[in-house]
Design a binder for these strands. Structure first.
Length: 213
DNA sequence: AGGACGATTCTCT
DNA sequence: GAGAATCGTCCTT
C-alpha cells in the first residue's frame, strides 16, 4: 500500500493496478470536492469494482463509446455518468490505460460540508444518509458530468481529488455481490464496504424493469 | 427496516 | 424503443 504524505492526492500508481486491488484500498480514503460553495470532504465507506470489457456489468462491456470514453483513458481520472433519467454516479478509473476498469464510489461519510450537502439532499433524515448510495453521494457533493474526466491525482486545488485516509481494520472490510447488477455479472462479489458503518447503503438486488404501457 | 412502485432522460440497438 | 451501476414516497411491520 502506497503511503504519500497527508493532504497530498493519491499518486497515479495507486490507481494503476488491477481494479480488485484498488477497490478495497479506497475504503477509508478521502474524496475532496472544491467549488465556489466551499470545500467538502467525504470518507469512503462502500465501493464497487467494474472490470472493463470482460465484465458484463461494466459500461465498457460493449466497447468504447462516447459515454464511457474516459474509462479507456489513463487511471486516476473521474468517470461520471448519468442514469435513470435523474442521477449521476462517480467512478475512479483504474488499471493500466485501456483496461477500462473503474471503481464506483457508492457511499461515504460527510466529514466536512454537511451543511452544503443538506441543501441538496433535503430528504435525508439523518446526516448518515447524505451520501448513502452512489447517486446520493454524487448529489451531496454536487458532482455531475461537467466533472467527467477530472484528474483525481491533481493538486489539492482541483474541483475533485482523492486523498489517502485512515484505512479500516482489515477485519472490518467485507465484500459481497454488486448492487443493481443483473445477468452474467451478478455473482461477482465485487462490492466492498466497511462492516458496521452506518453510512453503507442497503443491498438491493437487480430489479428488471416491467412494461409501462 | 424493508417491499412496491413511479419518476425522468440519456444511451445504444 | 428498451432499459438503465437509483432514489423518494408511501405503505406495512
Amino acid at each position: 500500500m502506497i503511503e504519500p504524505s497527508d493532504r497530498t492526492p493519491l499518486p497515479r500508481a495507486f490507481f494503476d493496478r488491477p481494479v480488485l486491488e484498488v477497490a478495497p484500498d479506497l475504503l477509508g480514503c478521502t474524496l475532496i470536492r472544491r467549488s465556489d460553495d466551499g470545500v467538502m470532504e467525504l470518507r469512503i465507506t462502500e465501493v464497487e469494482a467494474y472490470a472493463g470489457e470482460l465484465d458484463p456489468g461494466s459500461h465498457a462491456f460493449r466497447g468504447r463509446t462516447a459515454r464511457n470514453d474516459v474509462m479507456f483513458g489513463p487511471p486516476g481520472h473521474a468517470y461520471v455518468y448519468f442514469t435513470y433519467g435523474m442521477w449521476h454516479c462517480l467512478n475512479a478509473v483504474c488499471g493500466p490505460e485501456g483496461r477500462a476498469s473503474g471503481v464506483l464510489l457508492r457511499a461515504g461519510e460527510i466529514v466536512l460540508g454537511a451543511e452544503q450537502a443538506r441543501k441538496r439532499r433535503v430528504s435525508a433524515r439523518y446526516d448518515r444518509e447524505l451520501a448513502k448510495g452512489p447517486a446520493r453521494l454524487a448529489t451531496a457533493l454536487d458532482v455531475d458530468r461537467t466533472l467527467n474526466g477530472t484528474d483525481l491525482c491533481a493538486d489539492a486545488m482541483s474541483p475533485l481529488s482523492l486523498l489517502p485516509g485512515t484505512a479500516p481494520d482489515p477485519d472490518q472490510v467485507r465484500n459481497g455481490p454488486r448492487t443493481g447488477v443483473g445477468g452474467d455479472g451478478a455473482h461477482h462479489p465485487w462490492r466492498f464496504w466497511i462492516d458496521g458503518d452506518p453510512t453503507v447503503s442497503a443491498y438491493r438486488a437487480h430489479a428488471p424493469r416491467r412494461r409501462t404501457t
